[in-house]
Computed example of a mutant assay.
Amino acid sequence: MNTIAKNSRPAYDQLRNLDAKSWTKAYFTTTSKADNVENNMSECFNAWIISERYMPVLTMIQEITFKLVTRIKNKREKMLNSDQILCPKIKKKLDFYVTEARNWNATWDGAGTYAVKYGVRVVTVDLVNKTCACRVFQLTGIPCAHAIAAIHNSRQQAINFVSDYFKRDMYLRSYSQPLEAIKGEEFWEFETTDPLLPPDIPKKLRGRPKKLR
């Protein structure tokens, strides 16, 4: 915070007014196994439906539903045809940490904690409770480089310490519920007798219309 204050006082004042639990990892809970502080999920979804966003409402819903049904089916079939225990992206992260762990040396204290050392830096790891002093292990559910060094010292496999959230069975459960297909407009049943009124069209502004991205 002192560094932020030196670079931008308005940014410092704004962050002081926000709940620290919503923007800094130091106060994140370890239940959700997610350490993201950005809004990438919403941004990716908006980019994915960029062409559908400018369609009429009913057409937009129908097109998005069709894309979602296709995506759920493809994701489910891809994992069913795979023999990996972990999800692909999680496996890639774990492999990166395994490579980083080569620089760290671990030793067991005889109780339940490991001291992991690299140069003058020493980090403690508890494999029983799956925690590390850096908090990456408990925040993400994926063993960090320090934890993997301790895991290898204990002659165990790092893949066994990854949270169940990121394993094949949980992935398939996420995509196990089908999204019901929607009939086209020609098959709709209209039961109401109320007259359909045209929508209110606002006055057209001058100049070229702007698109908000």
Score class of each variant (00 low, 15 high):
1 M>W: 10
2 N>A: 05
3 T>V: 10
5 A>P: 00
6 K>Y: 10
6 K>W: 09
8 S>C: 07
10 P>S: 09
13 D>I: 14
13 D>F: 13
15 L>N: 07
15 L>A: 09
18 L>M: 15
19 D>K: 13
20 A>V: 11
20 A>C: 04
23 W>M: 12
24 T>L: 10
27 Y>Q: 14
27 Y>F: 14
28 F>K: 15
28 F>M: 15
31 T>N: 12
33 K>F: 10
33 K>H: 09
34 A>E: 12
34 A>K: 08
35 D>G: 07
35 D>E: 09
35 D>P: 02
36 N>S: 15
45 F>I: 12
46 N>I: 06
48 W>L: 15
49 I>E: 05
49 I>L: 06
50 I>S: 03
53 R>S: 08
54 Y>H: 12
55 M>Y: 03
55 M>N: 07
57 V>Y: 05
57 V>E: 01
57 V>P: 00
58 L>A: 05
58 L>W: 01
59 T>L: 07
61 I>G: 00
62 Q>V: 00
63 E>M: 13
64 I>G: 01
65 T>R: 12
65 T>H: 09
65 T>G: 04
66 F>C: 02
66 F>A: 07
66 F>N: 02
67 K>L: 13
68 L>H: 11
69 V>N: 13
69 V>H: 04
70 T>V: 05
71 R>D: 13
73 K>A: 14
73 K>I: 15
74 N>R: 08
75 K>H: 05
77 E>L: 15
80 L>M: 13
81 N>I: 00
81 N>W: 00
81 N>M: 11
81 N>A: 11
82 S>G: 07
87 C>Q: 11
91 K>H: 06
91 K>Y: 06
93 K>N: 14
94 L>A: 07
94 L>P: 13
95 D>Q: 15
96 F>M: 09
97 Y>V: 01
98 V>G: 13
99 T>K: 13
103 N>R: 13
105 N>Q: 06
105 N>R: 05
105 N>T: 05
106 A>T: 03
107 T>D: 07
109 D>F: 07
109 D>H: 08
110 G>W: 09
112 G>Y: 03
113 T>A: 09
113 T>L: 12
113 T>E: 15
113 T>D: 13
114 Y>P: 15
115 A>D: 11
115 A>P: 02
118 Y>L: 13
119 G>L: 04
122 V>M: 12
124 T>I: 02
125 V>F: 01
125 V>T: 03
128 V>K: 11
131 T>H: 09
132 C>Q: 04
133 A>N: 15
136 V>I: 06
138 Q>L: 10
138 Q>S: 14
140 T>R: 14
140 T>C: 04
140 T>V: 13
145 A>E: 10
145 A>F: 01
145 A>Q: 10
147 A>R: 03
147 A>V: 11
147 A>F: 08
148 I>K: 08
150 A>N: 12
151 I>S: 11
155 R>L: 08
156 Q>L: 11
159 I>G: 06
159 I>V: 13
162 V>W: 01
163 S>K: 04
163 S>Q: 04
164 D>V: 04
164 D>K: 05
167 K>H: 11
169 D>E: 04
174 S>F: 08
175 Y>K: 00
176 S>P: 00
185 E>T: 03
185 E>R: 05
186 E>M: 05
186 E>K: 03
186 E>W: 06
187 F>V: 06
189 E>W: 01
190 F>C: 07
191 E>F: 07
194 D>G: 00
195 P>D: 05
198 P>T: 01
201 I>H: 04
201 I>V: 13
202 P>L: 12
208 R>F: 01
209 P>R: 14
209 P>N: 08
211 K>C: 00
